[in-house]
Design a protein around this nucleic acid. Structure first.
Lengths: 219, 219
DNA sequence: AAATTCTGTATTGTATACAATATAGTTATC
DNA sequence: GATAACTATATTGTATACAATACAGAATTT
């Protein structure tokens, strides 16, 4: 079977959704740009149907807005949005820490430690892209450990929104090492099942990340 | 033009989305039920296309999950989800209060006061459904006043998820009056532009709402 | 009887065809 | 020349047609 969007993953719709979302978040499509179904479909070598469905999902996420019979326009996310997201995370990750420490099982805890070890390794090696990827996994594991669908959904989405800027900010001088230390403290609190400490260090980690991002030069 | 889902609103897809979401939240479709596109389309007198698009959106919201080539199954929201949502709101509405008080304009403030007055009126009258509707509007205005897209999106969705139970809990003896008093304190803090007090009373209001819901008999 | 293959059916996934709407440009009218 | 009505085009909205897949149950083989 030949496909125009690339193999792997599953339905066309899903692949298209992810591709468009990525392209909006990394700036290929800028705020105000119009997305024409037919044009996108041709570019990707598919029909309008899966493109439409992907767009409907982007619409729900607020990444595009659609004016009936007129067109779909990119909303994107602004620098202000990113700051807001950090502020929201700062208050929600405290909850996440609490719930995760209460509910995480030994196997997942080991996984978390393992990811931390890899972060250590790749930080020493200087492969920050890899560290960024591990960073996402690290926090995703915490989200999932909360066993809370509402919390997971919000935080996972937000984490994806800010992935690019987060990756860039990891490259600020000294930040990678500082971030590593913070993750170490988080892992330790989880191993000790110390809820109060876990809340504190995780929130502090988010705050430091936010401050680091705010110090960054505007893209 | 004749339409099968009822006039008003806009596109079929949007109406179908709202209808399905409502039916999931009020329990017409229970967790585990399968949603068959063709069946829904026939019931509503439309084609599969808009139904599919609505389902894709529900999927993104996590209200249904879809297994490729097999079917779409209702996830619904559990009692645990609702408790989690209250916990999340409890920490996020502090932020909301802060940002809203900083950014709300006089006109919107007046609107908020106006809604409060109406709540007072309908509470006295005993029309709790009306009070519930005003309650939603009251909090939506606060969300919008934050001018924060990420915060608005999360809190508006969550507010809708718990609307039914919130309405039911308003009917607990004494709760309506207590809720009214809490809203009065919120309005006052907004008028005084007293951020600290606003945070405190709004968070307290959410906590009381949560406690009230937790005391409710299980549906 | 157990295991395997086949086949039919239900359902979704994708493509295409047709309808409705918005907009811009053009022509007609004053 | 300004304004209004018309027309053409671009785009989305909806419906239908066709393809792929999953699954259950029958037929077949061992």
């Amino acid at each position: 079977m030949k496909r125009g969007v690339g193999q792997g993953g599953y339905s066309l719709r899903e692949k298209i959704f992810k591709k468009l979302r990525k392209d909006i978040l990394n700036g290929k499509y800028k705020a105000g740009d119009s997305l024409v179904e037919m044009k996108l479909a041709e570019e990707m070598g598919v029909s309008r149907t899966p493109v439409r469905e992907a767009i409907r999902q982007l619409e729900l996420e607020g990444l595009v807005s659609s004016i009936p019979n007129k067109g779909v326009f990119v909303e994107g996310i602004t620098r202000q949005d990113i700051q807001d997201i950090y502020a929201i995370r700062e208050c929600m990750e405290g909850l996440a820490a609490r719930w995760a420490i209460e509910r995480i099982d030994e196997k997942t805890l080991k996984e978390l430690e393992n990811i931390y070890d890899l972060m250590e390794f790749y930080t020493a090696k200087g492969d920050l892209d890899q560290v960024g990827e591990l960073n996402s996994q690290f926090h995703d594991i915490i989200f999932e450990s909360t066993k809370s669908k509402p919390l997971m959904q919000v935080l996972s989405d937000f984490q994806y929104y800010i992935e690019n800027i987060r990756l860039a900010s990891l490259k600020a001088p000294g930040r990678a090492m500082q971030s590593l230390i913070e993750h170490k403290a988080i892992v330790q609190a989880f191993k000790d099942r110390d809820i109060e400490k876990g809340e504190r260090v995780l929130v502090e980690h988010i705050r430091n990340s936010r401050l680091n991002v705010e110090r960054m030069p505007r893209a």
